[in-house]
């Protein structure tokens, strides 16, 4: 489903990684680990179609895709380390704006339910600037729960989440993988994914890294 061939990333003259190839099938979660600065976020942005690889190619459903490919944009839910929340808008409005943008037919009730699932029901109607870091991440989780995209790309999904939040993430990931979805996540901690679906990738072991 998602496949890379001899993928390489450079920053300036430094090679972050090269010759990276993997194939991820439906229902599998690729968890990328490695020290800071080894190119985890760079890899995720390439797979999301935000930036072009220095070398190699990325294939989605058997076809080679370039950055901002239309097919990839239909399939990817990208949850980067930036929250993409507008402080001026409420949690509800933020979520409603995103579901509309992404064509995820979700009505007001579905959005309210998604916010209730991440324990934000009572904070849904106040501006997002009044929310804590963890609550902001929870809006991201609510967004994933409304998403019917097949490929979830998550950059450090555990950051700022409390144990309840991690539990919500676990449920979401399990349901997504069971439904044949794919997950690519960068994480320093162990991601709550069933081991049968887990495909670990340690970028430090990929050749080309200039780090120790």
């Amino acid at each position: 489903m998602l496949e890379t061939r001899s993928l390489a990333a450079r920053r300036g003259f430094a090679t972050l990684f090269q010759g990276l190839g993997f194939a991820l099938a439906a229902g599998e979660a690729l968890v990328v680990s490695g020290p800071n600065g080894c190119g985890k976020t760079t890899l995720l942005r390439m797979l999301a179609g935000l930036s072009a690889p220095a070398e190699g190619e990325i294939c989605w459903d058997g076809a080679s895709v370039r950055p901002f490919d239309a097919k990839l944009r239909e399939a990817v839910a990208f949850n980067g380390h930036l929250p993409a929340l507008k402080d001026e808008l409420t949690a509800f409005e933020n979520l409603a704006a995103w579901t509309t943008l992404e064509n995820e037919r979700a009505d007001a009730q579905a959005i309210d339910r998604a916010l209730a699932d991440v324990a934000l029901a009572r904070r849904a109607r106040i501006p997002a600037r009044a929310l804590s870091q963890g609550q902001r991440r929870r809006i991201g989780l609510a967004r994933l729960s409304l998403s019917r995209r097949r490929l979830w790309i998550l950059d450090e999904p555990l950051t700022a989440l409390d144990s309840d939040g991690v539990e919500v993430l676990e449920t979401l990931l399990a349901a997504h993988l069971e439904g044949g979805g794919l997950v690519v996540a960068a994480s320093h901690q162990a991601l709550p994914v069933p081991t049968a679906n887990l495909r670990p990738l340690d970028l430090a072991t990929v050749p080309g890294g200039s780090h120790g």
Binding site: A48, G49, L50, F68, A70, R73, E74, V76, F78, G80, H81, L82, P83, A84, L85, K86, W98, L101, E102, N103
Partner: peptide
């Protein structure tokens, strides 16, 4: 650009 909204806009299936 700063809060990541632009990424999401550019990745959305709608015409940029």
């Amino acid at each position: 650009f700063g809060d990541g909204t632009l990424e999401q806009i550019a990745l959305s299936p709608r015409p940029l």
